[in-house]
Write a protein that binds this DNA or RNA. Sequence first.
DNA 1: AGAATGACGTATG
DNA 2: GCATACGCCATTC
Length: 121
Amino acid sequence: MAEFSERVLDIVKQIPRGKVASYGQIARMMGSPRSARYVGYALRGNHDPIVIPCHRVVFKDGRICEGYAFGGPEVQRALLEDEGVAFLDDMHIDMDACLWQPEADRLSRPPDIDWEKEMGL
DNA sequence: AGAATGACGTATG
DNA sequence: GCATACGCCATTC
């Protein structure tokens, strides 16, 4: 098992209830900001919904991969809503409010984060 | 063992 | 602003 997958799983498992993380952000957390694709890939290969809440891993847009998360789109929405995640649409999460920001606690940065700049950097 | 593919995101045309 | 191309690296056939 490559460290890549284990690291992804480890990060996803650490996503607190009521929070969501984007693939790109996780990729950046592991030091490979360009490898966002493989974050999800690792999840699929290690599909283990017991310890890997895939429904908390969403696109940058806040959309969920309903075709790959367990249960189904309805279950995902129910789980996320039950966890306190705000939904803008049936398939879009309020990233601005529910995005998992472990660093935010340290940076105490306002919600006016310039992600584009962070990404580009 | 080698080729193909794949849950994203950014850059460029 | 929309469409297309590329990059990244591991997993799978």
